[in-house]
């Protein structure tokens, strides 16, 4: 479960102080599929960084599974990311030198999962995104849709409490994008909590709940 209360975050860009998040509050229950939608510059990336524990808020509270995420050291944040959050990025962000299977395995290595268990989980995750046949291919040998599926497999292999997707269909054509969204729906039906960040209304509407963000302020809209 995610709870954000009165979260503020400001950046200094040159002389100007930018309020990326302005008293933003948000609750996502376990098993929910929530989309966060907003135009670029609205603060949704900052929102994602904070939810994803890549960054911490200036003020306000953030509870992830009832753990307050504040004033943690970088290493503690890394541990939380490793165990609780699975990232899916717009530009896939696979490591080009590693094969599909190795990319999926990476977060498990960082979690110090044992080798046999790692292999079991990797093949399980790749099976869920229907890429078992491509596990020994490098990212450059895969299509955009396949790369994104590898990225999703990497996110779910670690059994996170939250899958955080940042414009997962942004770099894909609409057909492939639909396939990827289908996978998210399947994951949702399988009980995963998904937060999807997008600027695309048609993608956002597929979620149970849509949250609009504009100039750092959050507004919930009916699905």
């Amino acid at each position: 479960m995610i709870v954000l209360k009165d979260v503020c975050k400001t950046y200094q860009v040159g002389d100007e102080i930018v309020r990326a998040l302005d008293h933003a509050s948000l609750t996502v229950e376990d098993g929910e599929f929530v989309s966060i939608i907003g135009p670029s510059g609205s603060g949704k990336s900052t929102m994602m960084n904070i939810i994803g524990c890549l960054d911490t808020a200036d003020s306000g509270a953030y509870l992830l599974d009832d753990i307050p995420i504040e004033d943690y050291s970088e290493n503690e944040l890394a541990q939380i990311r490793s165990r609780k959050i699975g990232f899916v990025f717009q530009s896939f962000n696979l490591i080009p030198q590693l094969t599909a299977a190795e990319n999926v395995e990476l977060p498990l290595i960082y979690q110090r999962v044992r080798r046999a268990e790692r292999h079991r989980r990797v093949s399980e995750a790749l099976e869920r995104v229907q890429l078992t046949g491509r596990m020994h291919h490098l990212p450059s040998e895969l299509s955009g849709g396949q790369q994104q599926r590898v990225a999703i497999a990497r996110a779910i292999a670690a059994h996170p409490s939250l899958i955080l997707a940042d414009e997962p269909t942004g770099n894909l054509d609409s057909h492939t994008g639909r396939d990827i969204m289908d996978i998210f729906h399947e994951l949702h039906e399988g009980g995963n909590t998904i937060v999807l960040i997008t600027h695309d209304d048609s993608v956002a509407r597929q979620a149970q709940r849509s949250i609009h963000i504009l100039d750092g302020r959050v507004r919930e809209v009916a699905p």
């Binding site: 890394a78 990311r81 962000n93």
Partner: peptide, 16 residues
């Protein structure tokens, strides 16, 4: 740098 970012996002600590 980007690779380091990815690795950190998916849970690599400083030490790793």
């Amino acid at each position: 740098t980007r690779e380091i970012g990815i690795r950190k996002a998916i849970g690599a600590s400083r030490g790793m």
